[in-house]
Computed example of a mutant assay.
Amino acid sequence: MDVTEDTVRDICTDAVFERGERYLAEGRIHEIHRVDSTVTAVVSGSRQYDVRVDLAADGFAPWCDCPYDRPGACKHVVAVLLRCVDDPPADDGDRLDAALDSADDDELRAFLRDELATNTDLRERFLAGVGEPTSQSVGELRASIDRRFHETNPEYHVVFEPIDFTQWFELANEYREQERHASAATVYRALVESLDDNMERVDGAYDHFSRAFSQALDGYVDCVATANRDADAVTDAVAFLEERVTAGTPVPADHFEKAAVELRAKLGEQAEE
C-alpha cells in the first residue's frame, strides 16, 4: 500500500491526523526502524508508546500500546506513518538476511536456544510455529494474562487503559494455522477466563476489552467445535460456558449463554454429517 498523506488520512479522523502532524513536527518519534515492510517506533506522549505498522498491508495494520480506543488509528501511529511519507527509515531487511546467511549454524542454534530458554512467550510461539501442541495449561496461560492486568496499574485495583493481548491472539492463530485446534482453544479459554474475571476492574476503554472478550470467546467456540470429537471434552466445554453464565461477572453472562447454545448447535451439525 502506498504511504501518502491521503492514505494516512483514510485510516484516522481529521482531528487525529492534525495531532499526528503536530507530534511529528514536535520530534516525538525517538526511535524508528524498518525490516521489509514492518516499521516499529517509539513515540512520546504522556509516556513512551510502542508503535508498529505494516506498510504493505491494507490500512497499514496499525498497532500501538496507547489507551486510544476510538475510531481509526491513534496520533502516535499517524505520526509514524507521516514520517514514512516524508523521511522513510532505511530497510534493515537485507542487512538482517546477510547476517543470517553468514552466521554459523551451531552458533545460530545456540543463540536461538538461549533465547527460547529464557523467554516463555517466544518459546511458545516457536513451538506453535513448528507444529508442537501447547505445553501450557489454561491456568498457566491465565497467570501471565492476569499479570498484565496487575502490571497495568499496580497501585490501584482499577484498570483505566487498554491492555495489549496481541501475543496470545497471535499464539492462538499460530496453533489454528497448524491445525492444533485444541491448543488454540486452551489459549482462547485462558483469555476468556481472565477477561471475564477482571472485567469488573475495568474503568475505561470498555470497547477495547469487550472486543477482546468477544474475539476470544468466538475463537474458543470455533476451536472446540473443530477439535473435540470426544464427548467428555465437549461436555466439559459446554459446562464451562454454562457455569460462567452465573459464576462470572454480570456483563458477559449473555455472551456465555449464547456461546453455549452456538457450540451445541455446531456439534449437532457435525453429528448429522
Rank of each mutant, 00 (worst) to 15 (best):
V3K: 08
T7N: 11
R9L: 05
I11C: 10
T13M: 11
V16P: 04
F17M: 07
G20W: 10
G20C: 09
E21D: 05
E21I: 01
E21S: 10
Y23A: 05
L24C: 05
A25Y: 07
A25S: 13
H30T: 01
E31G: 02
I32T: 06
H33T: 01
R34N: 02
R34W: 04
V39L: 07
V39Y: 04
T40C: 05
T40D: 13
S44Q: 14
R47T: 04
R47C: 00
V51P: 06
V51T: 03
R52D: 04
D54I: 03
G59Q: 11
A61R: 07
W63L: 15
C64G: 06
C66W: 02
P67L: 04
P67V: 02
P67I: 01
D69E: 13
C74V: 04
V77M: 08
V78S: 03
V78T: 02
V78I: 08
V80S: 02
D87G: 08
P88H: 01
D94W: 09
L96M: 15
D97N: 14
A99V: 06
D105Y: 14
A110Q: 13
R113H: 14
N119F: 03
N119W: 10
N119Q: 06
A128Y: 12
V130M: 04
E132T: 00
S135E: 12
E140C: 08
E140H: 07
L141V: 00
L141M: 08
R142P: 09
R142G: 11
A143E: 14
A143K: 14
S144Q: 09
I145L: 15
D146A: 14
R148L: 09
F149H: 13
E151M: 12
T152D: 13
N153C: 06
P154L: 13
V159L: 05
P162N: 14
T166A: 09
W168P: 01
W168L: 12
F169M: 05
E170N: 11
L171V: 00
N173M: 14
E174N: 04
E174K: 15
E177T: 09
Q178R: 03
E179D: 10
R180M: 06
R180L: 09
R180T: 00
S183N: 01
A185N: 07
A185L: 11
T186Q: 12
A190H: 05
A190G: 01
L191I: 00
E193K: 07
D196S: 08
N198I: 00
M199P: 00
D207S: 10
D207Y: 15
H208R: 10
F209T: 08
F209G: 03
A212N: 14
Q215G: 03
Q215Y: 08
Y220R: 00
Y220V: 01
Y220M: 02
D222P: 03
C223W: 01
V224Q: 02
A225I: 01
A225H: 11
T226S: 02
N228I: 01
D230A: 04
A233S: 11
A233Y: 08
D236K: 13
D236L: 07
A237K: 06
A239Q: 14
A239R: 11
R244N: 09
T246N: 12
P250T: 06
D254P: 11
H255W: 13
K258Q: 14
K258C: 09
A259N: 11
A260G: 10
E262N: 10
L263A: 11
R264S: 12
R264K: 03
A265N: 14
L267F: 15
L267I: 15
E272F: 15
E273S: 15
